[in-house]
Design a protein around this nucleic acid. Structure first.
Lengths: 173, 173, 173, 173
DNA sequence: GATGAATGAGTTTTCATTCAT
DNA sequence: TATGAATGAAAACTCATTCAT
């Protein structure tokens, strides 16, 4: 990946995250990235290709993010790890995750399929810890973490540290 | 409000919810609503005005939705009511709420200000029930409900009934 | 002429003078005049009709303006009178005359025909005063007065009083 | 400046001069110039930008036009030169100057500021020639020339040659 | 790989005008 | 006489994309 290609990708990420996919013109991406309009298309074929490239990066990060959780054998530790995740997002990555959320709404795509392994992994953990309704517990926890992540990314959480502790305590972790 | 104006509003709501604000052209709204494109602008000045009108309706409904919670005096009952809310959304209103969520992401606006009274009301409830960290509890609950609502609207919840029961039990309600 | 019709005419005059004919929409005229959009058309048929009505008023005033000059028998007095004209425009009539000038440019119409009697009258005056080239003198004087009027209407003349005196002296009046 | 950009500019000049700024659509400019409408906007941002570009060219020519006058040291020669100017406009430039006049009316902008050096230069000439009211003389002469130019451009002058002579004689040049 | 001029189809918006009331 | 909802056509402007260099 050449330097300019990288710049385009990064710029597009930022603009898509800030303004949305449809509201961001390819020409704006090019201008902001300091490259010619044509180059965007040379590298990514079309606007959708640019988006795809970004999304692919997103999924990679996403998997990396969750891999550690799924691999964890100890059920209590597995729950701990998934709960900690939202709080570990580095501030410089907020833009990136914001984009992922934003795009999911804008393009309306369904992530349930991709989440399945994670859901199952969490379900199993609750099962092993003898929760009476492990599947529902997993669903609820993931929804909670989803709401929480949203709030964190939007800088709407006042006291992350204690919120984390509270949540951990609720699951006796 | 004339009949046609109403139709435009309704059509725009549906299209914005389905496709997103930026991806929906005013000409499509007009065509779908069976009116001339000019009329859209006569009534709402510009595309943003149309959106605003929809959003204003949204806020009205939103307030109506939460009014019952805030007015409730008994703290346990208040919590019960807020938890029940997401599960009471009528299926024909999914579009409407989907739009509200979608737009919030697409336009990136901050709803914390508008949520304040609700947050305070829930905080107070937890306080009265002697939870050790009422403010954090309120924050967490609302985030949970936010994630949950999202899932419900997107038809991603498998067993709402039991999910609701589980959540109520967690708060001993 | 009803009161509302009069208001429309007056408003249109002002707007056309300020913004130009093409740049002024009928809806703006209606709004500014405080009447419905339809009424403008009821009274003047179409936008061109509105313009025509204004222009007709203009010609009336114009003729009134010059009648006194043409009627004057004494040649020196006739010249005096035509020279004084631009300086006698009342400030509240500037808008009106500005419009006349403006429209002439915008619509590109030729006023030579209408000016003929005046030109002849001035020519005759110069002839009677034994100027060697009366026709040229008349042309030049009228062009001077045209340039001068323009400047006056645009508030670009610093010292009208003395400018007038200077001009009169040049013709020994 | 690419060839097409040049063509657009030239076409716009002609159309604006003939029909006026507001009455000329960008689509007409594009069609007449044989380019896509988009290109007009690529090159000039918006319709006003196109106008501005033309006006800028106008000012350049304008300055060139008057530079020779202002540079002239001999006061009599300076007056001669300014008087000759309107008569030296080449017929193929009539369109251009017509536009300048037309736009000044349509857009209502004030050229006094830009004329200042010229006014001063003429004032000084009259002063050096011991005219009793040099500043007023300059004002009057320029207004005369303004009216005259207008008439020339509009082809309303019957005998330019002798009109010129008459004017020169009036200033003993 | 990189540029930027050029396009064509679309989008938002304006506007003169009509018509039912 | 007067209103204002409604229209259809055109205007200004945007944008993804192509292509010659």
């Amino acid at each position: 990946m050449t330097e300019k290609k990288e710049t385009i990708l990064q710029t597009a990420l930022e603009l898509f995250a800030k303004e949305g996919f449809n509201a961001t013109s390819t020409s704006k991406v090019a201008k902001e990235a300091g490259v010619s309009e044509g180059l965007v298309f040379k590298h990514f074929n079309n606007k959708a290709g640019l988006l795809e490239a970004i999304l692919k990066e997103g999924e990679k990060k996403f998997k990396l993010f969750y891999a550690d959780v799924v691999m964890e054998n100890d059920p209590r530790e597995r729950l701990r790890k998934i709960i900690l995740l939202p709080f570990q997002i580095a501030e410089e990555e907020y833009e990136f995750w914001k984009l992922q959320f934003k795009l999911k709404w804008e393009l309306g795509y369904d992530s349930t399929e991709k989440m399945k392994p994670l859901v199952e992994s969490i379900t199993k953990a609750f099962d092993e810890l003898s929760y009476p309704a492990p599947s529902l517990e997993a669903e609820l926890l993931l929804q909670t973490l989803d709401g929480l992540s949203t709030a964190i990314i939007k800088h709407e959480v006042s006291d992350p540290e204690n919120l984390m502790k509270l949540l951990l305590k609720k699951y006796e972790l």
